[in-house]
Write a protein that binds this DNA or RNA. Structure first.
Lengths: 311, 311
DNA sequence: GAAATCTGTTTGACAAAAGCAATTAAAAAA
DNA sequence: TTTTTTAATTGCTTTTGTCAAACAGATTTC
């Protein structure tokens, strides 16, 4: 994978900037006679809970063994941690925070939170949100273990101003990138959205959005076209958030909504390209009810129709 | 301004995460026998160029005076900086990087870039972009001096898949927040966009987008409705980017495009609420050619029409 | 205009933080 | 059993950073 020099420059500048900021954010540590390394050890100990050894800390934190040994010794003499000999290996000790250690960590984090509060105080609320989002993005991209988990995702079933545009944006840009569709596809999406918005009625129509923070990362909708049948549309999950069950959740919600609104049938139009989506449809009881080859969105595609009976 | 505890938590976690990362990114410093503080001094000296004094460094970097004095002394003995006595104040010295100092700094940044390169190597290209964007956002929000400057903004005149949706999104969400418009407004925007996209023809239509990285932050368009007149639409700059001339630049581009396409007249529809925009229109030669009161987008508004003759 | 005060910088003494190498003791391999 | 490897500790050292006092030029005060 090639690396964009512009990106490297920004990371470098960011690093330089954050080095100054860190100095400010970590200043409160001095009040408690703790070094940054010592704090990181405490945090790691809480994370690992049990069965944490010195070696693990050395490997994870990149800290010198000798230095760590002294940190741990001081922790022990202050009763912040408890050591317990391993019965598998007589050389190693399992390290664990004592209640006192946990309390200290909490106090420290309290102090840190106050510093952060002061820093954030003059920042308008929505910029604060944007900040948190951006920081999460940084962590998410750079660390393997800060993967997005289903708990980070919230769901919303009301359509707010800006939502429709963003869903169109996701469709336009993602299908262009992933499937090679041209602008005609976004035009078509725009048309369907206009028809939807104009006739929007919550008794027959329902939108579901998957959100990460205040960012839309997935969507689905059911549109009551007749008294009996409803069309499912705009089923999409942003690629960064696939594979953690968001698609299934959206689909379930949509099917349930259609049932609640007493529709007898759901149908949807997709293409044979959408392998992941169609397999999900089939798994949820949809069956293919038609297909035709045709030139669409600048490509030669096979349009497919799926249906499910709800009663 | 109140502070959201969720945001504080994310900042705290981010800080914790970045402390580990910084250790990695700054490791190369040890190879050159420089401390992090010393590096920051070097960077600041390059930034300030001339007339930088020790006091300024102390104030800006929050570094101890005694420590700084020693760092500077070592820099001087290594011919990385040159001191020059102030003739205004006999106590102070103006500090300046020597060519050798600049070269060292470049070498260091080279090393840093290599570290960053290694870190970024497994990250897909678009996630790299997203990372840079997120980091810029963080800096932008937290630092007063990292204000967006006009040089950071690029302009684009082609309409790519996803653009239309995003412009609609900006209109829908921003007008809702700033002017209180309801969903009907986004519906209307959607309709106008559909009409535009369907009849899109680059000989008569032109879109301009202001970009920050790969994010759309401003838009404008001219739509050739007849042989003589063109309508200006979707003129909007994201609030975070206002007041640095982006609006004027977009407007100029749009007027020029209309002239190039040999239209005789531009007209546009807006409301009396859009004070900043209308004053910009007037400043650029538009005149009000009509207005009517009417209920719109859930409010009682005064719709205004502006025109400009191009020949 | 001399004394007192203030400000920018330097110096000395010292403490804290971190790294390196040698050592110990247990485990694993030969 | 001997050798080698590994986890942790200890002694020693360097680096980094802090604090208070000193110093010298500037400014204020009387």
């Amino acid at each position: 994978m090639s690396v964009n020099p512009e990106v490297v420059r920004e990371v470098s500048e960011f690093n330089n900037y954050y080095n100054s900021l860190a100095e400010l954010l970590n200043r409160h540590l001095a009040d408690n006679n703790l070094s940054l390394s010592a704090l990181r050890v405490l945090i790691k100990l809480r994370e690992e809970e049990e069965q944490c050894t010195a070696g693990k800390l050395i490997a994870n934190l990149g800290i010198d063994g000798g230095y760590l040994s002294r940190i741990l010794k001081s922790f022990e003499s202050n009763q912040l941690i408890a050591k317990r000999k391993s019965n598998l290996d007589g050389r190693t000790w399992y390290l664990q925070l004592t209640p006192k250690g946990s309390r200290l960590l909490e106090t420290l984090e309290q102090g840190s939170a106050e510093q952060i509060g002061k820093l954030l105080e003059p920042v308008p609320a929505e910029q604060q949100q944007a900040l948190a989002g951006a920081m999460k993005t940084v962590r998410h991209i750079l660390s393997d273990d800060a993967k997005i988990s289903p708990e980070d995702i919230t769901y919303r079933r009301d359509l707010q101003p800006g939502d429709a545009g963003f869903i169109m944006h996701m469709h336009g840009s993602l299908y262009a990138k992933e499937a090679g569709y041209n602008l005609e596809f976004e035009t078509h999406t725009c048309k369907t959205f206009y028809e939807f918005l104009e006739a929007y009625n919550s008794s027959k129509d329902q939108v579901f959005l998957a959100m990460h923070g205040n960012q839309i990362i997935g969507s689905i909708a059911v549109l009551g076209h007749s008294r009996y049948a409803t069309q499912m549309r705009w089923f999409l999950v942003h690629p960064d958030y696939r594979g953690i069950g968001i698609g299934q959740r959206l689909l379930t919600e949509a099917i349930n909504a259609a049932k609640e609104k007493l529709f007898q049938k759901i149908y949807l139009i997709t293409t044979s390209q959408q392998v992941a989506a169609t397999s999900l449809f089939k798994k949820n009881g949809f069956r293919k009810s038609g297909e035709k080859h045709m030139p669409m969105w600048g490509l030669q595609l096979t349009e497919e129709r799926y249906e499910i009976d709800l009663i």
